Simulated assay, not measured.
Amino acid sequence: MARITVEDCLAKVSNRFLITQMAIKRVKQYREGYDPLVDTKNKEVVNALREIAAGKVVPDTSDDLHLHSAPTEEA
């Protein structure tokens, strides 16, 4: 891949917000000493996006953002 785009990542993860969350978490993991899952010479955030687009990083269902509607008041 010459360039990485959000559209490349959307093929694996359909939520842009979740892609952002995953990339942030992955960059933090690099800084803690985790090894990259794809071989590139790019910055951490680009490498994280490449991993997402390659399907090497998947969302953790226990950490996924779950949206709930607010309870309605009944009279």
Rank of each mutant, 00 (worst) to 15 (best):
K43I: 02
V38P: 00
D60V: 04
E74D: 13
E74G: 11
L18T: 08
S69N: 12
L67H: 07
E74P: 04
K56L: 13
Q21K: 09
D35C: 07
P59Y: 06
K41P: 00
V6E: 09
E51I: 02
V6P: 00
E32Q: 13
D35Y: 06
A54C: 11
T40Q: 05
R50Y: 07
V38S: 07
C9K: 01
N42W: 08
I19N: 01
K43V: 01
T20H: 07
N47I: 11
P71I: 09
E44Q: 11
S14L: 07
E32M: 09
L10T: 03
K41M: 07
K25F: 02
K25H: 09
D64E: 15
V38H: 04
E73D: 12
V13D: 00
L10N: 04
N42Y: 08
R16E: 15
D35K: 11
K25M: 06
V13L: 04
D8L: 06
E7G: 05
N42Q: 12
L67S: 10
A11R: 15
T72H: 08
Y30V: 00
I19P: 00
T5H: 07
K56E: 13
L65E: 12
K25Q: 09
S14G: 15
D63R: 12
R26E: 03
I19G: 00
L18K: 05
M1H: 12
P71D: 13
V57K: 00
M22N: 03
L10Y: 05
T40L: 10
V46E: 10
P36V: 07
H66N: 12
R26W: 03
V27K: 01
K56M: 12
D63H: 09
N15E: 14
P71E: 13
H66W: 11
A54N: 11
